[in-house]
């Protein structure tokens, strides 16, 4: 178990943090840029000085150097040494820890095969794709069998398709190795998909630590709700199972088709930033298409605009980029067409 109690960190916006991470758990730290997520990783790994204490399995780590903390840290930029080949990068940690040559070779072979990177083992990082670099960096991080894994937005520099594939790979591997992991992201979908528990951080303070569904359906504070894009939570009056793993739910006057594997649920959360808006009827094969009315423009931020639309007396919060808002060119009380894709509806567990 990892236990962090922080009073203060010089020059960093982090204070009074108290976080317990269980063995084998995937703890996702979520928050906006500059919230202090990476700072917490740097404290756990000992890369920055701090006032407070960090314990690994009851052992105080405050005077233990980063090299001896036995943590694996996957950097956002991967930090692959450009002057070393893929193989040399992976074996770096083993070599400095004086493993013998045979052990190193066996371990590197094992990892390159696990990550499917045998074919690039003798290449330098320069010519590798983002996905390949990520795999190499992950292999290097795991090479020395660290007890704790720290991942700093490892998928943010990848294209969405590669990120999806690697996310699934990583999730499976983390469960298989049962390695305690702290994962930093600002991507909510990523957080919900990966986390055993989520810690929401705002301005260096942990606002809530809960299971992903609780964060969504029972936010402790308004700012947690706001950080998640103010999703609309609807109570379901009726749930009817359909074929192909779908269900039809009725929430007041609104009827929606959602993905459901048969688990009972009584609420749905509609992620505001996934809803699609159009001035004209939406023609594509998307379920949950409605004609709505724009009832309020709640906030116009630097890059995001928050709106409230009404469909058959049910109000939904919608977030969209400022560019999209300007392109839309629509006024309050005008009609608008919306589509709520499957991926934007999350069902609660009863």
């Amino acid at each position: 178990m990892v236990n962090i109690k922080l009073k203060n960190i010089n020059n960093f916006n982090c204070k009074d943090i108290n976080l317990d991470i269980k063995d084998g758990e995937m703890m996702v730290l979520i928050g906006q840029t500059g919230a202090g997520k990476t700072t917490i990783l740097n404290v756990i790994s000992g890369l920055i000085p701090y006032e407070g204490s960090v314990y690994f399995n009851g052992k105080c780590m405050d005077n233990v150097s980063p090299a001896k903390r036995d943590v694996g840290y996957l950097f956002q930029s991967f930090a692959l040494f450009p002057n070393l080949t893929v193989r040399e990068n992976i074996s770096f940690g083993l070599e400095v820890k004086d493993f013998d040559k045979n052990q190193i070779n066996t371990r590197v072979d094992e990892l390159t095969s696990l990550f499917g990177i045998e074919h690039i083992a003798n290449r330098y990082p320069k010519g590798l794709s983002g996905g390949e670099k990520q795999r190499v960096a992950f292999a290097r991080t795991l090479a020395t069998n660290p007890k704790i894994l720290l991942l700093d937005e490892p998928f943010s520099n990848l294209d969405p398709r590669t990120a999806n594939i690697l996310r699934n790979e990583m999730k499976n591997l983390q469960k298989e190795l049962n390695i305690t992991t702290v994962f930093v992201t600002h991507n909510q979908k990523e957080a919900f998909e990966l986390a055993d528990r989520v810690a929401v951080i705002k301005n260096g303070i942990i606002e809530q630590v809960s299971k992903p569904m609780d964060i969504l359906f029972n936010p402790y504070t308004q700012s947690v709700h706001h950080l998640l894009g103010s999703p609309t939570i609807l109570r379901c009056d009726e749930v009817k199972e359909l074929d192909f793993g779908l269900a039809k739910v009725t929430c007041g006057s609104l009827s929606l088709v959602v993905i459901n594997d048969g688990e009972p649920f009584d609420k749905v959360a509609i992620l505001s930033y996934e809803i699609r808006l159009s001035k004209y009827p939406i023609d594509s094969v998307i379920p949950n298409k409605f004609k709505a009315k724009l009832v309020d423009v709640v906030a116009i931020g630097k890059s995001i605009v928050q709106l409230v639309v009404e469909i058959q007396n049910t109000k939904l919060t919608v977030e969209l980029s400022k560019t999209n808002w300007n392109q839309l060119g629509i006024e309050v009380s005008e009609n608008i067409y919306i589509a709520i894709p499957f991926g934007s509806i999350i069902t609660s567990i009863k």
């Binding site: 770096f92 820890k97 290097r140």
Partner: peptide
């Protein structure tokens, strides 16, 4: 700095970091 931090977290001493990471780069 992230190269130096990465090497340090992998267990490298200052001398090894200089020799294998910093000077070559």
């Amino acid at each position: 700095p992230e190269f130096i931090n990465a090497a340090r977290l992998l267990g490298a001493s200052d001398f090894v970091i200089l020799k294998k990471v910093v000077i070559p780069q």
